[in-house]
């Protein structure tokens, strides 16, 4: 579903990702872990086309994302092409990024009506279903600012799902929440993971969640994947010294 091929990403002199290659199968749930600054979030932002690669290619569902084919050459993708491929990808942000100038309903129907071309009725029905799913059915006409952080994040998840994406990117979605709200959001994500076949890439510091949600965990350090294994293996018997240290630090904090 997702292929990174020798991807390099720099911010100025700072190399965030070096020669990174990996694949994600359709429907797979992959969690990216590692110390901050190791490039995990950058991977999600590259997939969402919020950043551009410096070299290498990224493709999603067999189509290039970072590049497009022009004649017989591969050139960096332009805005129009990006938008086409981007439609298959959804993202939930650490800070929710709900639009404050719209109600919950407005946030949910905006892209389905304007990008997918759904009718108002269809989009509204979809919005209501998704809000019921995330347990906020009665908040459809509320304003984002009237909701708690946990509720806002549920709305943001529903908003991403309203586009029926093939790929869902979760960028530290519980990091900005009060501790008592984290469990609810994680449970929702588990339910979504079980009930759909969406490919999910997830950056998180919640190791318990990573363990039982993921099919695969990738440990990042210094812009490279240093370990890539099923969660059972990573969490109980990691090969790499850095992984052991990292997990110890996170689990005993």
């Amino acid at each position: 579903m997702i292929t990174f091929d020798a991807v390099e990403k720099r911010f100025g002199d700072n190399v965030v990702l070096r020669e990174l290659s990996f694949d994600v199968a359709p429907g797979e749930h992959v969690t990216l872990i590692g110390p901050s600054g190791s490039g995990k979030t950058t991977i999600l932002r590259l997939l969402m086309t919020l950043e551009k690669v410096n070299s290498g290619t990224i493709s999603v569902a067999g189509r290039y994302l970072s590049h497009m084919v022009k004649g017989d050459k591969l050139v960096p993708s332009d805005e129009k092409y990006c938008r086409e491929v981007r439609m298959r990808i959804g993202m939930v942000f650490q800070q929710f990024n709900l639009f404050p100038n719209m109600t919950v309903r407005g946030n949910l129907i905006e892209a389905p009506t304007r990008v997918l071309g759904l009718s108002k009725d269809e989009a509204n029905a979809r919005a209501q279903d998704l809000l019921d799913l995330v347990g906020l059915g009665e908040k459809i006409d509320a304003h984002p600012t009237q909701l708690s952080g946990g509720q806002q994040q549920r709305v943001a998840i529903a908003r991403a799902l309203a586009m029926r994406p093939d790929v869902l990117l979760l960028d530290e979605v519980t990091s900005a929440l009060d501790p008592e709200l984290v469990a609810g959001v994680l449970k929702l994500l588990r339910d979504i993971g079980e009930s759909t076949d969406i490919t999910i890439l997830c950056v998180t510091h919640e190791m318990g969640f990573a363990r039982d949600f993921s099919d695969r965990v990738m440990m990042f350090d210094g812009g490279r994947v240093i370990e890539d294994a099923p969660p059972e293996k990573i969490f109980s018997d990691p090969d790499h010294r850095r992984t052991q240290d990292f997990l110890q630090a996170v689990l005993n904090h």
């Binding site: 990808i89 942000f93 990024n97 639009f99 404050p100 100038n101 304007r114 586009m163």
Partner: peptide, 25 residues
Amino acid sequence: RAQYEGAIALSLSPAQRMRRVIFPQ
């Protein structure tokens, strides 16, 4: 900036981003 990113993640076009999300704010 996050509002632009939210709008990009929903595949809104540059004109839609400005008109529907950024300008009202």
